[in-house]
Amino acid sequence: MTMQAPETKIVDSYRVACDGGEGALGHPRVWLQIPTDIGWVECPYCGCKYIHKDFEGKV
Rank of each mutant, 00 (worst) to 15 (best):
M1W: 01
M3Q: 14
Q4F: 03
A5K: 15
A5S: 14
P6E: 14
E7I: 09
T8A: 11
K9H: 01
K9L: 15
I10G: 03
V11L: 10
D12A: 10
S13P: 00
Y14D: 03
V16N: 04
V16W: 06
A17I: 02
A17N: 07
A17K: 08
D19S: 10
G20S: 01
G20E: 03
G21C: 07
G21M: 08
A24S: 10
A24F: 05
A24L: 12
L25E: 13
G26E: 14
H27S: 11
P28H: 11
R29N: 04
V30I: 15
W31R: 02
W31K: 03
L32I: 06
L32K: 11
Q33L: 11
I34D: 09
P35Y: 04
P35G: 08
D37V: 10
D37L: 08
D37P: 05
I38A: 11
I38K: 15
G39E: 12
W40V: 00
W40N: 04
W40L: 12
E42M: 11
E42Q: 14
C43G: 05
C46F: 12
C48W: 07
Y50T: 12
H52L: 11
H52M: 07
K53Q: 15
K53M: 12
F55A: 02
E56P: 00
E56S: 04
K58A: 06
V59P: 00
